[in-house]
Design a protein around this nucleic acid. Structure first.
Lengths: 220, 220
DNA sequence: GCGACGTCGGGAAATTTGCCCGGCTTCTCC
DNA sequence: GGAGAAGCCGGGCAAATTTCCCGACGTCGC
């Protein structure tokens, strides 16, 4: 990266929203938007081609999501600077993003200046978190909600995904070549491990943890 | 409204996103953004103060949501032109918005030109729907999914809300001063009326129909 | 080889679900 | 004012599921 001219790539599936990022960022001297992508796959491809100094990335996108895009880009270039800018004011998402290799997490509810400041912070080597996410993370620390991906085994996680996909116990049993009884046992075990009493709580916990995004809901 | 100078109010809880709308719309000669609001209550207040010729409105916002804001504005000014511009590519939302009095529904995934065209269509007296919403509505017509708000009685709807709020049957019974048995019966009746087999399907249907927005999920 | 752990499922009691019923109130329409 | 429809409430009971226990098997690390 040259010092005087920092290049940026924007990743968001909404073209009009990218227009907003661009307007805000290009008001800053020394920042230049050189690429835009509408989904994770395009982001990865364009990153390799354009080598921007920083990526501003949304999380919820069709196809390959933001988290996976971060992982891929960081695998290809471990020094990549990626700043997540999303609507999800959600500690679970922030944790996932940072673990995947993001250098910051700012919510879209923040004033535009916050984005500008976060960009500067990332260039300065700091981890940029907006105040509301600080707060969310603090709360989640206190709540100590069990993280599904951490406590569940691979098999349990798979059954959970299928349950959330509106499969009946019998369908899952047939799919996995196990007895319906085992599915029932796993279902029970999952609820126990996650400290959840009903299926309704289970779905809501899954939503909070991003296991099921609102996007997928329609695609039943 | 004067012919040469059409005034617009933007409503969206994300400041950066409003920046995008503004950039796209003000490129058009004859359009001028004269107000911005970040939630439904502010939108209603500002509408009365500024009397814009058109409102571009998001749906999911903190506090008073977009649907309710549309209702209020239209009650105060039955001729108000309101165009919904949202990320929700969801037939149920579109139906609610149009019923509340919106003159159009465009999703944020549409190219920026689609927004410009929709604005022009609304000014021309047409109902503006983006192609993906046309498609969603067509599908929903074929699927004929039961609409919770239509088929459920008030009591049933109330129980449904409480169930979704992660209350146990016993809590609901105590809250409504009825027997747990009745709650169980209502729970069963709700699932029957909505043509749903499990609680998981029930939650997902509620999400599709906007009874439970992703925003609320965290606030358990 | 031995303990820890994940996977798979049987068994049995406890609970919930699915579906029926009848009684009660309210509202409408004649 | 009476007949009928529709909503609300809850008992009853068989069937199904959930809950919790158990043992068997494979595999991995030490």
């Amino acid at each position: 990266m040259t010092q005087g001219r920092r290049t940026i790539m924007l990743v968001d599936d909404h073209a009009v929203v990218r227009e907003g990022y661009r307007a805000v960022l290009e008001k800053q001297p020394g920042l230049k938007v050189i690429a835009e992508a509408g989904d994770g796959a395009e982001a990865y491809r364009l990153y390799k081609e354009k080598r921007p100094d920083l990526v501003v990335m949304d999380l919820t996108m069709p196809g390959i999501g933001g988290i996976e895009a971060i992982r891929r880009i960081r695998q290809w270039d471990p020094d990549a600077r990626i700043l997540v800018f999303t609507m999800h004011q959600n500690a679970a998402f922030a944790v996932q993003a940072i673990r995947a290799g993001a250098r910051g997490y700012v919510t879209k509810t923040s004033p535009p200046e916050a984005l500008v400041r976060a960009v500067a912070d990332v260039f300065a080597g700091k981890v940029a978190l907006s105040p509301d996410i600080d707060h969310e993370l603090a709360l989640s620390r206190l709540a100590e909600e069990t993280v599904a991906a951490d406590v569940l085994t691979a098999r349990e996680f798979e059954v959970l995904r299928l349950l959330l996909a509106e499969r009946t116990a019998d369908e899952i049993a047939a799919l996995l070549h196990i007895s319906p009884k085992t599915v029932a046992n796993l279902h029970y075990l999952i609820k126990t491990k996650l400290g959840v009493g009903s299926d309704i709580e289970l779905v809501r916990l899954a939503l909070r943890q991003g296991l099921l995004t609102q996007m997928e809901i329609g695609a039943s």
